[in-house]
């Protein structure tokens, strides 16, 4: 972060904000403000250019047709790739995660090119939709506590050698490949299937991104009471479903 305010960019709320992932923006904003940072939130509609000077970009899940439209417009725009090249943080969920990969299956059943920011390829599962509470262990590279979330997707995402899994599921399906992986990440680009929204269930991930942006090792503590209460409840619920 170089400017005086943290620039938080919410990508295409008109197309990709169907599943409550706006919550990720709200939690990110809240956690930053609680640490005394000024936050400039920029909501970018799909007929507007993506600013390249953001610190953190958030992309949510959406329905099948809006996902294709978003991919087309992001490819044409090119701003998100430039932001990633500049070292900005990009955090994506579900349909947004698939768009960051090399390709996914669109609403017409065709292979749609993504942005290639994550070395993953998504296909469509033949079986039942993956729906339900998820529990997973975060990739050790991030040093974060257990991941809790809610998944609701038909996609299957295969990871290439250029990424690490975001987490490994103990309950739920995650990437749907059967190898227990959930999501993908490399450097400052993250993808996950988790809703909930995921940052409300896992505010330490929001803090992790803040630390990366600020290039600091620690942040002042904040009141975690209700976040922690919700986390323990959802972790127990996931374990009970699995039992």
């Amino acid at each position: 972060m170089t400017a005086s305010a943290l620039r938080l960019v919410w990508v295409y709320p008109d197309l990709l904000s169907t599943y409550g992932d706006q919550g990720n923006v709200l939690v990110m904003e809240r956690r930053a403000r609680q640490r005394g940072l000024h936050v400039e939130r920029v909501d970018v509609r799909s007929d507007q250019p993506i600013p390249t000077s953001g610190d953190i970009y958030l992309i949510g899940g959406g329905e099948d047709r809006p996902q294709r439209l978003a991919a087309e417009r992001l490819r044409r725009d090119g701003g998100l790739q430039r932001a990633a090249d500049n070292g900005a943080i990009i955090f994506s969920v579900c349909a947004g995660y698939q768009i960051l990969g090399h390709e996914f299956i669109n609403d017409l059943g065709q292979r749609e090119p993504g942005l290639g920011l994550l070395d993953v390829i998504s296909t469509r599962g033949e079986g039942a939709r993956c729906v339900g509470d998820v529990l997973a262990d975060m990739d050790p590279g991030m040093g974060l506590p257990q991941l809790t979330g809610f998944e609701n997707h038909q996609g299957i995402t295969h990871l290439g050698p250029g990424v690490r899994p975001f987490a490994r599921v103990t309950v739920g399906r995650g990437n749907g490949t059967g190898d227990g992986t959930e999501g993908a990440w490399r450097d400052t680009v993250f993808g996950t299937y988790m809703h909930g929204p995921v940052l409300a269930r896992n505010p330490r991930i929001a803090d992790h991104m803040l630390k990366l942006t600020l290039d600091v090792g620690a942040l002042p503590p904040v009141d975690e009471r209700w976040f922690e209460a919700l986390r323990s409840e959802r972790i127990s619920a996931a374990l009970n479903t699995a039992a």
């Binding site: 599943y19 992932d21 706006q22 339900g132 609701n152 809703h195 929204p197």
Partner: peptide, 9 residues
């Protein structure tokens, strides 16, 4: 519906 994510909308 078993997903509460909509609360954030």
């Amino acid at each position: 519906g078993t997903d509460t994510s909509w609360l954030w909308d």
